[in-house]
Simulated assay, not measured.
Amino acid sequence: VDWEKIGIVVVHIEADFVRQIFASDHIAVQTAVSKIGTKSFHLIQRVIDTETNEIKCVCKSVMVTFDLEKHESMPLTKEWIEAICKYEERDLLRTEK
């Protein structure tokens, strides 16, 4: 990927902080792709304390592929979709009803 020409931008984010996070906490962000569209994909994330496994924050994000030269959204490539589905070990193109 030529990151000078193609980017991924955040277009929407929701975050629910359910516990305080302190500077001394050891935290990690767990991320999974929950849905893929033609130009976007949705992420679900949670911030956890790695020592206690306590959930500190739950997030939902929408990411869009972006043509940095034309300054407009662009379709996800077949290769990206296949790579994401392979990494997530499931078909994300199916929509739930």
Rank of each mutant, 00 (worst) to 15 (best):
Y87T: 14
K86C: 03
D67A: 05
E96N: 12
H26N: 15
H42F: 04
V29S: 02
K56V: 09
E89M: 02
I27P: 11
R19K: 15
L93N: 13
E14K: 05
E72F: 01
K97N: 10
V1S: 10
I27D: 13
I13D: 03
Q20D: 02
K60A: 11
C85Q: 14
C57P: 05
I6C: 09
T77V: 00
K5V: 09
K78A: 01
H71S: 06
S34Q: 07
A15S: 14
A83S: 10
H12L: 06
E96L: 12
L76A: 00
V29M: 15
W80D: 00
A15Q: 07
E14T: 05
T31G: 07
P75D: 03
K78T: 07
F41D: 04
S24W: 06
Y87H: 14
F41Y: 12
I81G: 00
G37V: 05
A28Q: 11
V11W: 01
I27N: 08
I84F: 04
I48T: 14
E79T: 00
K97W: 07
A23G: 11
S34N: 04
W3M: 11
R46P: 12
W80S: 01
L43Q: 11
D16R: 15
V58A: 08
D67L: 07
V64P: 04
E96K: 14
K35N: 10
